[in-house]
Design a protein around this nucleic acid. Sequence first.
DNA 1: CCACTAAGTTGACTCATCCAACAAAGTAGG
DNA 2: CCTACTTTGTTGGATGAGTCAACTTAGTGG
Lengths: 416, 416
Amino acid sequence: MEPKDQIGLRRANLAHVLEVLRVHGPHSRAGIARLTGLNKATSSSLVAELTDRGLVRLGSPATGQFGRPGHLVELRPGTVCGIGLEVNVDYAAVAVLDVAGTLVRHRRVARDLVALGPDGAVDLLGELASAEIAALRADDAWVAGVSVAVPGLIDVSAGVVRLAPNLGWREVPLAARLAERIGLVPGVDNDANHSALAEHAAGVAAGTPDLLYLTGEVGVGGGVISGGSLLRGATGFTGEVGHMPLDPAGERCGCGRIGCWETSVGLAALLRGVAGDDDPVRDPALDLEQRLTLIAGRARAGDARTLAALHRIGSALGVGASILVNVLNPAVVVLGGYFAVLGRWLLGPAREELCARVLAPGPAGCELVLSDLGFTAAVRGGAHAALDAVLTDPTTAPSRSATAVRQAPEQHRSTS
Amino acid sequence: MEPKDQIGLRRANLAHVLEVLRVHGPHSRAGIARLTGLNKATSSSLVAELTDRGLVRLGSPATGQFGRPGHLVELRPGTVCGIGLEVNVDYAAVAVLDVAGTLVRHRRVARDLVALGPDGAVDLLGELASAEIAALRADDAWVAGVSVAVPGLIDVSAGVVRLAPNLGWREVPLAARLAERIGLVPGVDNDANHSALAEHAAGVAAGTPDLLYLTGEVGVGGGVISGGSLLRGATGFTGEVGHMPLDPAGERCGCGRIGCWETSVGLAALLRGVAGDDDPVRDPALDLEQRLTLIAGRARAGDARTLAALHRIGSALGVGASILVNVLNPAVVVLGGYFAVLGRWLLGPAREELCARVLAPGPAGCELVLSDLGFTAAVRGGAHAALDAVLTDPTTAPSRSATAVRQAPEQHRSTS
DNA sequence: CCACTAAGTTGACTCATCCAACAAAGTAGG
DNA sequence: CCTACTTTGTTGGATGAGTCAACTTAGTGG
């Protein structure tokens, strides 16, 4: 990790320049030198190399007040991209982001993934990814990597899905299986972790070094970013917050235990709360978003039962979140999944409980916001995770001048 | 943080060598080169500089099997030391550790700190620290730093105790106040955080990059080390685990809320559980350790009430720990404070609940162990925190040859 | 006594950053 | 319109860290 070489030092400084551009936006080479603390000459040299690798470009001849105006250096859109994939219960998705953070492409296909099974899922994901990779290569862009979000317990280093209850998967070597289809080894991670990365990189909480992301789906998952990096834990299973035992007198959970947080804030609790057994919301022909639209409509119309249920869920959400806030002390808690869709009615009671229960003084512990990435957070996070490899080691991106001469004969290897 | 200079690179490599020696024990320069991936020549040069700074020394002429035997390089005891301080309700303590991790000195004085108040505490801590600093200077040792552990909410960067309920402190600028007495600015941190550092550096869980430390005192505190470094959170208030609301039908907590974890596993719960109103354990003349000895004696003797209470507490401990384990996924959970003293009776039921509730597959999530540092963990952790400055930047330690010539006239500045 | 092996040192070499001087490209004011 | 001023970006030389390869040193084993 720590550079030990001069070349490692160079790597770190290249990465540092990219980081500065990501955080502070376009700047002249002199400005970069000031921001990084490096010498002007070094800054120029670094920018030259990054330009050669297609990561930055010289933009508009900047707005100067005095003296010679500089040329702005900006992250170059379109040339170096990361691909994010997502599997979920009833859909799969793909997203392409470039280093500038712009969404190049996003596609989502509805499919019953449980019925397809792991084999079918690998086929589907492979197709989605291969199409994007081919399109990017045709565009002369370079693919920095691919990363897949899966709702379940993931062994990140091995690229294996250990357990994904909602998909019915167990011990699926997803990275290896996908690698056969797309020609490069993808990363695999939990969907909440990927979503947290997306929020950290580009969402409402962009740049916040300490944030907590909560997904509201069938289960409730958590992704934790602390000190600027994703918490992984000893075996990669952090953020399993759905089964916190919050009420010994509560209901039985799908996991077999009593009073798990999920039983009061999960999707099942929502449906149970707002709708009786023969309510149209439960129509199996409806998908998640249609149901949520229906519920939101009732809430907007002032339906008492709906509002009461949402209030109850909001409070329970606040109680559970307070535990996590006291343990992790994030600056922001981002609510994703269905929480974000119905957030308007959940946020009030949730904030009330949260603020009442957080021990840390000041308002710092109480910032609770809704994700603006909606259900796309996980895919986008995957793309960010894939891009992270280039952003921390820009030398992995191929040189566009030298390579053409020196590495041209080896092109086949890099495309394999 | 990241080195950007060659001199930053040098710093990082010096630190890397120290790290290797700390983790892998004494090695020859050639061995260090292999372990670090650096060149033999570089390794020699780095070791020479570290020797000059008093951080390492050449030890025994190593045990070789073939070829020329190397001289072992080892962390040098006694010359570069960190000082840890601790304030608690009924005692204050000081500990001195050297870079080799050996406890040079440990002293603990019983005192009613609540009665003394912040001013008295500053006096007492100042005396304890100054005595050690003077002794070390007389020994020609160099003090790398001082760090104080306080049971409460600490603003680490400002060195201010925001709130320490058990001490009755509020907004005490401890770092600044102590700096006046001892001539250097000490670090200040939460006692659980410091204890976690101690366990990470030298306790039962030494070297584990992901661990959770739980203190059993009047309150219950948590220190989290994840990915090899201490979790601090946005404002430095991580690990406030005592007030997790685990039972809506539970007892009222000192914080005013219902069913906090502390109400079932804190020291008050222990006393309530094992002893009636007029039980000798409640004799106000007894201090904590005497009470615990008494309780342990009864448990050993098979007293039914005591055993039942401990079993109940153990279970509650496991339930609460399971939440933290699911969120943080540590490899080890270390129990400190009174949990460690009575651990023999708590561990069984706690492990049972923990293993039943942890979602992560395999035995990884279930390792629950007792601290072997006992009530000294926090002070020791302070000393480790102080040493951390030198270990991450060895160039802060004064050169012993060049300094004698070049910096001799400036000696006064460095001792001020 | 002589191969053999591995440790540690030395001096030449590479390469990244720094430094200082300089050329370039604008603005402000007479 | 021209000149002083300010800031950008480049250039060539200096510093210094790490690498490499050859060499010396110091043991073991036959």
